[in-house]
Computed example of a mutant assay.
Amino acid sequence: MQKPAVQGFLFDLHGVIADSWQYHLASWRQIARELKVSWTPQLAETLPGMSRRDSLRTILSSDNRQSEFTAQQFQAIATHENELYRQMITKMTPANRLPGVTKFLKELVAAGYPMALASASTNAPAEIVRLGLTGFFSKIVAADQLQHSKPAPDVYLAAAKLVGLPPKNCVAFEDTVTGMQSAKAAGCYTVGINQQELPGADAMLANTTELSLATVLRALGQPVG
């Protein structure tokens, strides 16, 4: 049975396009300190890829504190984290692009492939501006309009719609387990970028320096050239 042809590319932001998880984790560590919740390696490993609300639920649940806050208090804490994060990303510049990403994006544009940003972050448009990548990502999923965050497929279904393609014809790049689950649930080809195997990935790259159109197509069993 012939595989669906690759016709478009969908990108997570944090850990795939930019080294920006440091800012998210720093803001969540601050929240944990303020709430007097112990910050653990498991939290640092689990939060990447989650929405803000899911991240806060996970932090509170780690200390059995989820029932202590009203909906209004919960929202206030989530808003505070976003404010902390927005302060931190003022430091973000094109230097935060991960190695090899710019070259790969230029290669996709030259080959005529449409692409979209599939990030769960509502700050993604501002980050793309600070990274100097607006020329590549005119199509960015509106995370605040999604009904469900990763690992649900919503963000990748929305991204595929932005490029006008069925998910089965799109390649999704992810660096987290949660993100990989989202892309797989949407029906995309999946490429994991992580030194650890991401369950369900159709192909794995250790880091972004390995990105090239030929490498990705070969790894997915697609014709090259």
Rank of each mutant, 00 (worst) to 15 (best):
L198E: 02
Y85G: 07
V109D: 01
S119A: 12
M204S: 10
Q196D: 05
V16N: 04
H148R: 13
L165S: 07
Q87G: 14
I128R: 01
G179V: 07
R33N: 15
A159V: 06
V141K: 05
A120N: 03
G15E: 00
P199T: 07
P151G: 15
Q181T: 10
N169Q: 14
F173Q: 00
T90C: 12
Q72V: 12
I31Q: 05
K91Y: 14
T122K: 11
L117K: 00
L56K: 06
S61Y: 12
A95H: 06
A219M: 08
R29E: 09
E83W: 04
R52T: 04
A143R: 05
A160M: 03
L165P: 01
N64L: 05
G187Q: 15
C188Q: 11
L133A: 07
P199W: 06
P48A: 09
H24W: 07
V191I: 14
V129A: 08
K139L: 05
Y113F: 14
A201P: 13
A158M: 07
V141C: 02
A143S: 09
G192V: 05
S38K: 13
V155P: 04
L131Q: 03
A158Y: 10
A18M: 01
Y85K: 12
Q75D: 14
T90V: 15
A110M: 09
L13N: 02
R130F: 00
N207E: 05
F9N: 03
Y156L: 06
M1R: 15
N169D: 13
G225H: 15
G135I: 00
E45P: 05
A160F: 02
T93W: 06
R53D: 14
P153W: 13
L60Y: 14
T79R: 09
L13I: 08
Q2L: 15
P94K: 03
Q196S: 10
Y23Q: 05
E34Y: 04
A26R: 08
N169K: 12
Q22M: 11
V109F: 04
C170T: 09
D144Y: 07
F74D: 10
M92G: 08
Y23E: 01
W39P: 10
W21Y: 10
Y23K: 02
V141R: 02
Q42W: 13
S51G: 13
G221N: 06
T46I: 07
S27K: 06
S149H: 12
P167I: 07
F11N: 00
D12W: 00
T46C: 11
A126M: 04
E210F: 05
L47H: 13
C170Q: 04
L56G: 06
P4Q: 08
H148D: 11
D202W: 02
K150P: 15
L13E: 02
A120L: 03
L47K: 09
F11R: 00
M1N: 15
Y113K: 05
T208F: 00
L211W: 01
Q30R: 11
A76H: 05
L43P: 02
Y113N: 04
